[in-house]
Simulated assay, not measured.
Amino acid sequence: MKTLTSALLLSAITGAASAAQIQDPAKLRQTVDQFLQVQSAGLPGKVTVTVGNVDGRMKLAACPAPEAFLMPGSKPWGKTTVGVRCAAPSPWTVYIQANVSVLGHYIAAASPVPQGQPIVESQLATIQGDLTTLPASIATDKAQVLGRTSNIAISAGMPLRLDSLRIKPVVQTGQLVRLVSSGPGFKVSAEAKAVANAADGQVVQVRTAGGQHISGIARAGGMVEVAF
């Protein structure tokens, strides 16, 4: 009886030791969750991370410092796959599926937006939804699109994408502009001709009456600020 008890005790101790040497799946999921929380911290909205289950049939060696990473080309939002690797004492790598949703506001067309016409506020609506399911470069603030023109006709209900919008130029090719440079105690101005279109705040190149090409910052009212 004593021999049987000792054998059972030894078996229990051996089993506990073996379990202690196997990686806890919950730790892997926690590593992925923390990694995605950090990676998505700058996204514009309420972030929710859902980590998939880890295959319980895997018996990975316990790792004191598992490291999460994204595969090349992967993004830390929407449906994604995160790798977790261990360098020591036993190297291994596993891949775990996850989903990162971002509940936020985006700008959609409240009414049809014709191509090439400046967008006004009455044409816009603010909608709430999962931003990760929407097209890239989605507008999230009306200020981003007001006054711009669209490269395409936009139907009511469609989200507005910044990459399909153009900023209204304040300086146009061939326009006569006023070059202005100022500093402590002085202000100099001269006339020149723009050689390209530019929106407010963009760099534009102009040509002076003498044929010299100068770069400056386009401003409303046909002005170009130049630093000498």
Rank of each mutant, 00 (worst) to 15 (best):
L176N: 14
D55E: 15
Q205V: 14
S6T: 10
T93Y: 02
A153E: 15
K59N: 01
T208E: 09
A12P: 01
T126M: 12
R148A: 12
L165E: 04
I127F: 10
T3I: 13
R207W: 09
G42S: 15
P72H: 11
A156T: 07
V145G: 11
F186C: 10
Q128G: 07
W77H: 09
A218N: 06
V226H: 00
M58I: 07
L43F: 01
G216S: 07
Q30T: 15
E191A: 15
Q205Y: 05
Q172S: 15
Q39Y: 08
L162N: 02
P159W: 03
V51R: 00
I214C: 00
V206T: 04
L131V: 11
A153V: 08
M223K: 09
R85E: 07
L10D: 12
D141R: 05
T14K: 03
V113A: 09
D141M: 08
P112A: 13
G216T: 04
K2F: 03
N197L: 08
A68K: 05
L131H: 08
G210Y: 09
S164Y: 14
Q30E: 15
P64K: 00
L160Q: 05
G183E: 12
S74C: 12
R148I: 05
S137V: 04
A139F: 11
I217V: 05
E191K: 00
T31I: 11
I152V: 12
S215W: 04
T3Y: 14
V226A: 04
C86D: 01
P89D: 08
S150H: 05
I152L: 11
G201V: 10
G147C: 13
V94E: 09
E121P: 00
A62L: 09
Q97K: 04
G45C: 14
A194H: 07
G201K: 09
A139H: 10
Q117D: 14
V94Q: 01
V54R: 08
N53K: 04
T93L: 06
S101F: 04
D24C: 02
G174N: 11
V204L: 10
A227H: 13
L60I: 02
P44G: 14
P91H: 02
A68Y: 00
P89R: 08
A136K: 12
G183N: 06
A26P: 10
S155G: 12
G42N: 15
Q205N: 06
L28D: 07
L103F: 10
T133W: 09
D200A: 01
A26I: 00
S164A: 15
